[in-house]
Write a protein that binds this DNA or RNA. Structure first.
Length: 535
DNA sequence: ATAGGGTTAG
């Protein structure tokens, strides 16, 4: 765009076609503000816009939610007699409904002399966007011409409102379906918690494209079914001609992160580099996160350094990854570096920054970063940030201050916050505050036995066995079993889950013998393993 | 040279 603009600026009296070309360039590259600035210049130079001008300008207004400017453009359109143009009208409808002004969108629609199927689709999509499916359906029933896009729009309207029955009914009524119709209903089932229906549909689809595969794999990922993500990806590679794209890789990388599948993650890294994804910001971000969460922070840093283009998520992934690995200084340095590169931090950046402070015990620094959120960056701290502060104080052993902080918080503390405090009470052996934390946790999560088990363990630590037993009984009385903490390890190209004291593995005897040997070895180095939790 | 539908990351 830089060169295009230089060239444009040297044209003595650009006509409307040339103006439209520069608008198109800026709109396609998401420089929406620049489109509006240039449109004003065009008006000042008295160049008459054509019907082609307004779609670019209106789209830009919509994208940056500049409804006020959009209305001015609308007036200009009426004055210059373009309001009947279907292209202009459609973009007006789109802009108004995108800004929540559905009445204005409907008015534009009503005043249009020629309503083709695209105009109808735009206004129906508008009603869907403002959660008025019923109104959308009424309009749909009034249409005389229906093409596959209109049908798909109405089907996805029902899906977004959570009504899969109506969506499926309409899908079955469709005179003809394209791949997108199938993909829409597939993702619909996935997002409305019916994985089985989605899986069955996937098997009978007449045709699949990249969106079908990503819909399946991405749906699994959203439901934390990470093994299925890997299985789906392997199926895609072996039994289809569809080539993975960046969205596919990002999804599979996130599954690797959660499963600790470092070898597969490394394979994906090589695959990405040799298949044209070098320099893809999405994939790079996924790789940073995968390497961090799989324990390989050095590889994460290498990916980070190799990325020429970085966005907010790149920085956030790196900062959070470093904090996660206890490299607080590096995390805070990265934060400074980010600012000097002109990238604006957001709420998630501060989750990383605050947890970096927590792991280094930097209470005062943590507070000044917390203050800077509102003072310097006008970011309103959310519950997770208050939780970070409670965690910061708690882990530093300042339990009393942590409770005071909770009392002064403008938001009600959630279970994560109280659990952080409860966990720290165990380390710092503070029974009184542990009991207080449990009281609140019982209110917030009355059916989670983990909280009672934790307090029971704290009693056990200090030898109050009666109280410990009493709370174990309470925990058991909750009717649900505590979900055991589960971990996973990648061995020989497969990921295996395991629990504490797991007896399921065929090699359990050898595994526990090796663990016993390691424990002895640690003792010989003077380390005394704390085996309390293995009771 | 312009308008309506689907997937991804912290």
């Amino acid at each position: 765009m830089g060169y295009a603009r230089l060239f444009f600026d040297r044209i003595p009296d650009p006509n409307s076609v040339l103006w439209n070309a520069i608008f198109k360039g800026y709109a396609e590259n998401e420089f929406y503000r620049e489109v509006l600035v240039l449109f004003n210049q065009m008006k000042r130079k008295d160049v008459k816009p054509s019907a082609f001008t307004f779609p670019f300008v209106l789209k830009s207004c919509g994208k940056i939610s500049a409804l006020r400017e959009g209305k001015e453009v609308h007036c200009f359109i009426i004055k210059s007699g373009f309001q009947g143009n279907p292209f202009v009208g459609t973009t007006l409808i789109d802009m108004y409904s995108g800004g929540g002004a559905i009445e204005s969108a409907h008015q534009v629609f009503g005043e249009m002399p020629v309503k083709n199927v695209i105009v109808w689709t735009a206004v129906i999509a508008g009603y869907i966007l403002v959660n008025d499916v019923e109104h959308a359906r009424k309009l749909f029933d009034l249409t005389v011409e229906r093409d596959v896009v209109l049908w798909n729009t109405m089907v996805s309207g029902y899906i977004e409102s959570g009504d899969m029955v109506k969506a499926r009914q309409l899908f079955d009524e469709m005179p003809n379906r394209d791949v997108m119709s199938w993909n829409t209903i597939l993702v619909g089932y996935m997002n409305n918690e019916d994985l089985k229906a989605a899986e069955e549909l996937f098997e009978v689809m007449p045709e699949r494209n990249i969106f079908s595969w990503n819909g399946l794999i991405g749906g699994y990922a959203r439901h934390s079914r990470f093994f299925e993500v890997l299985v789906g990806f392997k199926r895609m590679l072996t039994e289809s001609d569809t080539v993975p794209n960046d969205a596919t890789l990002v999804t599979v990388l996130s599954a690797c992160s959660r499963l600790g599948a470092l070898d597969l993650g490394k394979w994906l890294h090589v695959y990405a580099e040799s298949n044209g994804f070098k320099g893809n910001v999405y994939v790079g971000n996924g790789l940073i996160d995968m390497y961090s969460k799989c324990g390989s922070i050095e590889n994460a840093i290498d990916v980070f350094n190799s990325m020429e283009l970085k966005d907010l998520i790149t920085w956030n992934s790196m900062i959070c990854g470093l904090a996660m690995h206890g490299r607080g200084i590096d995390a805070l340095n990265a934060f400074d570096c980010m600012k000097s590169m002109g990238e604006k931090p957001d709420g998630i950046t501060f989750v990383g920054v605050l947890s970096a402070c927590t792991h280094m015990g930097l209470v005062e620094n943590g507070f000044s970063y917390f203050q800077s959120m509102t003072n310097e960056y006008s970011i309103v701290p959310q519950i997770e940030h208050y939780g970070c502060m409670v965690d910061l104080l708690s882990r530093a052993g300042l339990l009393k201050q942590a409770v005071d902080f909770v009392r002064k918080m403008p938001i009600k503390a959630d279970s994560v916050t109280w659990s952080a405090l409860l966990g720290a009470c165990r380390v710092h052996k503070n029974i009184e505050l542990a009991e207080l934390a449990l009281e609140h946790l019982m209110e917030l999560e009355p059916n989670n036995p983990a909280n009672c088990v934790m307090l029971s363990n704290i009693y056990g630590d200090v030898g109050r066995w009666k109280d410990a037993a009493r709370l174990k009984v309470v925990a058991r009385g909750m009717g649900v079993r505590k979900i055991p903490g589960c971990s996973s390890i990648e061995v020989n190209d497969a990921v295996t889950e395991f629990y504490s004291l797991d007896e399921r593995h065929p090699c359990r005897v050898e595994i526990y013998e090796a663990l016993g040997g390691l424990t002895e070895l640690m003792k010989s180095y003077g380390d005394e393993p704390d085996l309390k939790d293995l009771r």
